[in-house]
């Protein structure tokens, strides 16, 4: 599986791209591969505040519905509304066009609990 080096990973199979105080969040290649065809993403509301571990969004595939569990706390600043028309971007480009939401982080320390690419690769190999 493809796990870019510059991202952080949660054990709920989300990735986090950090740019200053803003984190972009999506699901990993491993996650999209397990889910199968994504048919709908229930996006969070812009302005919503989220805490680590909270279910903030849902991804529906042909197989099942999965919660997106917030990997970092903060306020949602932007959501990827293009996913309304093209939820399959989560499958075809999970780390690019398939991003789900951006959050203004309230606690940069949340990042310390996340895995790097190598650790996540080992985590999914054991899964």
């Amino acid at each position: 599986m493809n796990n870019p080096e510059d991202l952080k990973y949660s054990n709920d199979h989300e990735w986090v791209r950090v740019d200053g105080n803003v984190a972009t969040i999506g699901i990993t290649d491993y996650a999209q591969d397990s889910l199968g065809d994504v048919v709908y993403v229930e996006l969070p509301d812009v302005g919503a505040t989220t805490s680590v571990g909270e279910a903030i969004s849902e991804v529906e595939s042909t197989k099942s519905v999965s919660d997106i569990v917030a990997p970092v706390s903060g306020a949602v600043t932007e959501v990827n509304s293009a996913l309304d028309d093209d939820p399959g971007a989560l499958n075809s480009d999970p780390y690019g066009d398939g991003w789900i939401y951006k959050v203004e982080m309230s606690n940069a320390g949340d990042l310390d609990a996340l895995m790097d690419a190598e650790a996540y690769g080992a985590f999914t190999a054991d899964a």
């Binding site: 397990s34 199968g36 065809d37 048919v39 042909t62 197989k63 499958n91």
Partner: peptide, 21 residues
């Protein structure tokens, strides 16, 4: 094939290219 439990059988829910295709 992604194998799942269906009525006590281990069967593919979909293959590499996905259920929609």
């Amino acid at each position: 094939g992604r194998m799942v439990d269906f009525a006590g059988w281990e069967l593919p829910v979909f293959y590499e290219t996905g259920a929609i295709e």
